[in-house]
Design a protein around this nucleic acid. Structure first.
Lengths: 251, 251
DNA sequence: ACAAAAGTGTTTGGCGTACACCCATGA
DNA sequence: TCATGGGTGTACGCCAAACACTTTTGT
């Protein structure tokens, strides 16, 4: 991976990176896509550098696509992290030697980096983790079981989740996180997981349907214990309209 | 101004700048601090570059202090702007010649810049615009009368105001925008100006006092037409506490 | 005296919260 | 038939929006 970057080093904005917090939902659990590289025993957020001739938002999408195969999904900038020492000591000679980094390139990686944080909400099933090579591991990790992360990535992750909770008051969530057909209880679980608290079934139904973004399908979930819940889908037009215009309520 | 920067050019993060949207309140109008430099006929936001050995937030404060004399005030990062062409053509040879910029430095200024936006709320009276030199004009401009701005500064300003409106639901506002002693109607005007809509006097009073950040003083405003309104001050401890813990209401 | 703005209280409706009952299904 | 979870309806309470009257001051 680093080799590819080295070839084009001069094409990147110096001292600037992008980190993506990619949320997925599976087994009624909020998951985060994390990467472990060969040169570290800690996990980290998928990230990358910014081409000098690419818009920042586009670059974030590009980073995401290159490292996870995901494309055209909800991706939002939420904060920029710029503590001086945030990447201090992340690379050292031992690691550079391991990676065979040319001497003249080491300063570039050791310079002070500022990173722009983006978060994404993706369909867990469609997002197949794609490691670039054998030295990289990409995995979905339960957000409650995230281990120590490199650099300030824990801080970035927390801030992303905090922002997501805020934005839950301003927009609906679920379109990219759930499959096309889903049940109200599934959607509710998603909200409960993000907000980290229980919601009342009946009140949730009333509020969520009142928004007008759901289409009740003439179909029930099969192969489930107990009463089969109804399936719903998002009315994409109305969904996007509400995302654009915003909600005026809280949870 | 540019001369000072040139001397330390290598001490700045390349391709990274900071822009500050500084809001003040006077004559029941929301004002924005803008700067006009000699080399442009358009106004722009006060901004600057980021030292390589300075935290981003600290750097923002530093930029603000150096260019306006303001210190230790409410300053919040709200977005990072990174379109490729956002500073394309901002400097050209004519301007460089005007500024006597050495040839070897011109590339540095012409490179693609990403800028981090901060917004501040300051006491209009204490914030004395401080131009660095004769070639610079610093002025408070009514936010309804902001002219064409350089680069994407109009976009940055709009985004700042949008963020401020959002955050009005999450925290109280006024501490740094109003003088120590103020009246409820003045505070209400501030809210109305930010939100750009009328609020009901009585409901406003009830809501704002319910927060518990106001201290009613045994004093009335003097030299005013009609009935003298009571003076209030902020209970700074409670104010900071609420800013920290957040509100759970909207306007 | 009159206008204009400040201070105070009351009514009302909607929304959020809490809760009870019925239904469908698998074990 | 029982436990579990889904679907539907209702009652209550609080807060916010709407609104009327009195008080104070300058002209």
């Amino acid at each position: 991976m680093l080799k590819n970057i080295l070839d084009n080093r001069d094409n990147y904005q110096p001292g600037l990176s992008i980190d993506c917090v990619i949320f997925g939902f599976c087994d009624n659990q909020l998951k985060v896509l994390l990467i472990k590289t060969a040169y570290s025993d800690k996990w980290g957020l998928p990230g990358g550098f910014v081409s000098v001739d690419e818009d920042l938002d586009l670059s974030a999408n590009s980073v995401l696509y290159k490292r996870t195969g995901l494309e055209g999904i909800f991706l939002r900038q939420f904060a920029t992290f710029g503590a001086v020492k945030r990447n201090k000591g992340h690379f050292n000679d031992t690691i550079f030697d391991m990676l065979s980094t040319p001497l003249e390139d080491r300063d570039w990686y050791s310079q002070r980096f500022i990173t722009v944080g983006y978060y994404a909400l993706v369909d867990f099933l469609r997002a197949v983790p794609q490691p670039k090579n054998d030295e990289e591991t990409v995995e979905w990790i339960d957000h409650n079981a995230v281990p120590d992360l490199i650099l300030d990535h824990r801080n970035i992750l927390d801030k992303a989740l905090e922002t997501l909770r805020m934005e839950l008051n301003l927009m609906p969530v679920g379109y990219n996180l759930l499959p096309d057909k889903f049940t109200i209880p599934e959607l509710q679980k998603l909200y409960e997981t993000i907000l980290d608290r229980k919601l009342d079934r009946r009140n949730f139904l009333r509020k969520i349907t009142a928004i007008g973004i759901l289409t009740k399908l003439d179909e029930k979930k099969s192969n489930v214990a107990h009463k089969a819940p109804n399936l719903y889908s998002f009315d994409q037009d109305k969904y996007n309209e509400v995302v654009k215009n915003g909600l005026h309520q809280g949870w």
